[in-house]
């Protein structure tokens, strides 16, 4: 396997007419399409920001720029880890790839948790909801759609992570499925409950109270985490290898794209409001 893999050129695929791997071409075309998708969303937001109806919400009174800047930094770091994951698999290092994938998912979760906190904060503290102002409608829909992209990205990365354990000799469907379930539970609990909770703690809430009120999700998260560690042990030869670099790279493209969309949103939706 190794001698065959050694000949893989990750920037040229001899089996296609252009030398670009099919999957890479597909994803780049999809990202071009997604540009229009976010273009339409951002346009909607900006159109209503530039021509606001009277009595619209005032963004600067609602935003929490420190937290958002931190989220932005987190997402950039997740992009770095994603790039490193691709780098690792292109060098045939499956172990390092797994670590980097988990790291990317972790940072992705931090970002999502920040967004969950932000949304609940806006709704319950700042009293801006999806329906009580046009700014709420466009803001939540735009950032929420971006968040959904991130969440789908985490799910895809989770599937990819689990796939790296697929045994070389076949079988193991059930174990694989349990593994994916552990990923979903752990990361789901993390971004829906744990991360926003921790941010509350940072802003002065009591940690013990948080635990007391939400013991079940906490327990579920712990169980998921233990399962994840237990299942993460190396279990003999796996099918996944350097030849799958294109799969990791394809998901990487998507992940980085989500990052660059955030770069634009951060500037256009948040920063420019402060002028």
């Amino acid at each position: 396997m190794n001698s065959h893999a050694a000949t893989i050129d990750h920037h040229h695929d001899a089996t296609t007419a252009t030398g670009i791997p099919n999957k890479k071409l597909l994803w780049w075309a999809f990202l071009a399409s997604d540009c229009m998708f976010f273009g339409a969303l951002i346009s909607t937001h900006l159109v209503y920001r530039l021509n606001p109806p009277p009595g619209n919400a005032v963004p600067t009174q609602i935003f929490n720029i420190e937290l958002t800047s931190f989220s932005t930094f987190i997402l950039l770091m997740s992009s770095l880890l994603m790039a490193l994951a691709v780098n690792a698999i292109q060098r045939g290092n499956v172990r390092s790839t797994r670590t980097m994938l988990l790291g990317t998912m972790f940072f992705g979760c931090l970002f999502l948790g920040g967004q969950v906190f932000e949304f609940t904060h806006f709704v319950y503290v700042k009293k801006m909801t999806l329906s009580n102002s046009i700014f709420g409608s466009t803001f939540f829909t735009l950032t929420g759609t971006h968040g959904t992209h991130v969440a789908i990205g985490v799910l895809l990365l989770g599937m990819m992570y689990v796939r790296t354990f697929k045994p070389a000799q076949g079988g193991g469907l059930l174990l694989n499925f349990v593994h994916l379930l552990a990923v979903c539970v752990t990361f789901g609990v993390a971004f829906i409950w744990f991360v926003p909770g921790m941010i509350e703690v940072v802003y002065g809430a009591s940690f013990s109270e948080l635990l007391r009120e939400h013991a079940i999700p906490f327990a579920a998260g712990i169980v998921g985490l233990i399962a994840l560690i237990a299942l993460g042990r190396t279990r003999g030869a796996v099918e996944f290898g350097e030849k799958n670099a294109i799969d990791v790279e394809a998901i990487g493209l998507y992940w980085h794209f989500v990052d660059i969309v955030w770069i634009i949103i951060f500037t256009a939706v948040y920063l420019l409001e402060y002028l």
Binding site: H11, T18, I20, K24, L80, A83, G252, H256
Partner: peptide
């Protein structure tokens, strides 16, 4: 990060 620099 997205390797465009090195790709076709």
């Amino acid at each position: 990060f997205m390797h465009l620099r090195w790709d076709k």
